[in-house]
Design a protein around this nucleic acid. Sequence first.
DNA 1: CTGAAAGCGCTTACAG
DNA 2: CTGAAAGCGCTTACAG
Lengths: 329, 329
Amino acid sequence: MTTLKDISRETLLSLSTVSAVIGGRAKKLAISEKTVRKVLECAERLDYHPDLSARTLRCSKSRIVGLLMPNLKVEFWQNMILDLQREIRKYEGYIVLSALWDTEETIRKCMDELLCRKVDAIITSHAPLLPENLFLPVAAYDREPSAKYDTVLYGKKEALEKCLEYALSLGHRKIALAGDAEGDGNALFLKLASKYAVTPFVGEIPEKKAILDGSFYYRNTAVLGSGKDDTPTFVISLNNLTTLNLLKRASEQKKRVPEDLSLLAIDDSSVYPFLTPAISTFVRAEEGFPSLLLETLFRRMAQKDLPLQRIVPRGKLLERSSCTSCRKR
Amino acid sequence: MTTLKDISRETLLSLSTVSAVIGGRAKKLAISEKTVRKVLECAERLDYHPDLSARTLRCSKSRIVGLLMPNLKVEFWQNMILDLQREIRKYEGYIVLSALWDTEETIRKCMDELLCRKVDAIITSHAPLLPENLFLPVAAYDREPSAKYDTVLYGKKEALEKCLEYALSLGHRKIALAGDAEGDGNALFLKLASKYAVTPFVGEIPEKKAILDGSFYYRNTAVLGSGKDDTPTFVISLNNLTTLNLLKRASEQKKRVPEDLSLLAIDDSSVYPFLTPAISTFVRAEEGFPSLLLETLFRRMAQKDLPLQRIVPRGKLLERSSCTSCRKR
DNA sequence: CTGAAAGCGCTTACAG
DNA sequence: CTGAAAGCGCTTACAG
């Protein structure tokens, strides 16, 4: 394996000089263009790859961002993780190292992994589970702002507001929310509903800590009512599986979407454009949560004494074909 | 940050002893139980995390497996990447570092990243793009066996055979294949069809290198025919977007699935159980491609002079509700 | 620009 | 079991 020493020997230049050129410190040390070229050419020729573990050891900076998240088989989450790995390319030299846990018992192990690899900073969806004495910059993705770390917020309230406004603008007054697995969505929705003077329908909340099996996604479409009694004309869906099941339930009730029932999803799914009808969505973070998290984190890394950041995502509506104006009844 | 030296000072034991205990070499060096406990307790108390970059530097082994793949927004692929990160937990001490490229131009950069981080081995879907002089163990996921590296094969031929056999067992004779973006699926299918004496229908192959936009997934459902003329009774779908569009096309033609048309997908999707009808699938790798790749790779790492491995995945049929026996016509 | 040297945290071989 | 020492590949401060 080629090392700096090899290049130094080959070019007859000193180790310091070679290191400076490779490390991009040629300008500062006033090293001649010719020397720089000579070093670079030689590095190329010998297929030199700097040993970052040596650099990490020496500088106690790894240029690794640790990602501490659950490994959920959920489209939104998978995109979150993979987009983070994509977006970090904007930050030259940095990589993300994911430590994804399957069960809460392994979180500690995931954390240790990151610590042993000497990550420079952490992005996590579970900041409260971080060790007390953590000295690293952290960007948290969370429902509530953390008291200790910079937080990018879910933006659920803002999303629900926009969805309600959109429904209202189409003339709907009977509006349902489906797919809330945590309970906070429903609570938020009920509060907003009274403010906007709409009739709210909310789904059942699963038992605390119950596993969300397939049946949940179907059961919680009961917000559509039985078809006979009072029934919403507009549903907001909180996840892609619920959306699919709303479509199924509607079809069983011989309701056409969007003629009889408008359907608006929160956040996008790769599958939505291909459904019949194509599903309109409100995307919570136009820029993408991964970008927001990375920006927040690198801002902190650049300036340690920055006041605590609290980022509310800016969303956007993606109109496709699943919503229409409310017909007179 | 706690180091071995801190523990050595604290426990009044020598650096060598502490290192041996932490490194799990206590047995070999006949270090007493009491000493071991003392070291471990102290490490725990001081919240010690071994610096793996130092260990990597010293031992020239990083215990990192590099993952070199495209960052595709495709469910199958996302699962591949994330499941690999999940599965590696079985291999104590190892982690995967993903280098995912967006465009082919960045492959080189991804490769360099892995090399600089001193990965011990590589898993990739694009082994032919690896540098000539690569000295690392490689597990390739590929259509054809590599001449140089261990390969886990796609298993497309085996999958198509099983799908055909299943269709035949249900009495179908007019069978279509949809969703082939590369052309090799169709060719394979046509060859098999003659062997099994079925009437094959295949979809159009997109222009070489054409971007697969949404329209492709719909256009290639034309295998269903116009509804008037000769038409298949059983369709095999090669990806989830095609499956969705087959459902859409069938409904436009007033064909019911599975009564008028059986639909069998290759590989599973999180969305299939929630569709109407729930989609039956043939899963190419029962054990999962990630497991297969990891097993193949670690077998190689354990034994460098192993003969070249060529793994054909063993698949399984997942019956749900989208296939039924062929009605008399 | 150069050269010599120290040191990051670890493992390992060696003499005791 | 211990202690002293070397060395992995790098960066950095320093004297020239």
